[in-house]
Amino acid sequence: MPIVINSLEYQLPADPRVSLLDFIRDHTGLPGTKKGCDHGQCGACTVILDGVRINSCLTLAVMHDNCDVITIEGIGSAEQPSALQQAFVKHDGFQCGYCTPGQICSATAMLAEIAEGWPSDATQDIGTRPSLSDEEIRERMSGNLCRCGAYPNIVAAIREVADAGQ
């Protein structure tokens, strides 16, 4: 069975060493997913796999037979951006733009996790539903490094979308 990326099917690679990240970037013509460290230390490669966000650099393409992947290109396009993508532009939630697809994939999944009631390290009482405080957003987004230092703007962009959705 193939792997499904942004609703299109692709055959898995013959070489088992191909990471899911390299597969997405080099084998499917979808370079929007970025490689910043290749070791799960920066989050630039974040994609949404079967509904949850992961680091695509730390897994093998061959392990994802019949899996469903959403990359930044599947979240929205320049012509039809998602609400988060628009908010990132409005709040200048990036500078060089290299971590940005990972930030947006991560934030997209993160809002769903909060809606599900998943706790985080910033949750005061993990027995209860987490709030949507800035501290919660920051902790949950900490797996996405931004060396340009756009963090406060990213939080502002996410907050705008989260507040509009509530």
């Binding site: 799960g40 989050g43 974040t46 796999l49 949850v52 966000r53 992961i54 680091n55 730390l58 897994t59 991560s106 999944a109 993160m110 996790e113 985080s120 949950r140 900490s142 797996g143």
Partner: peptide, 8 residues
């Protein structure tokens, strides 16, 4: 770790 890593 991070949410991405914990998910995997």
């Amino acid at each position: 770790a991070t949410q991405q890593l914990r998910n995997k």
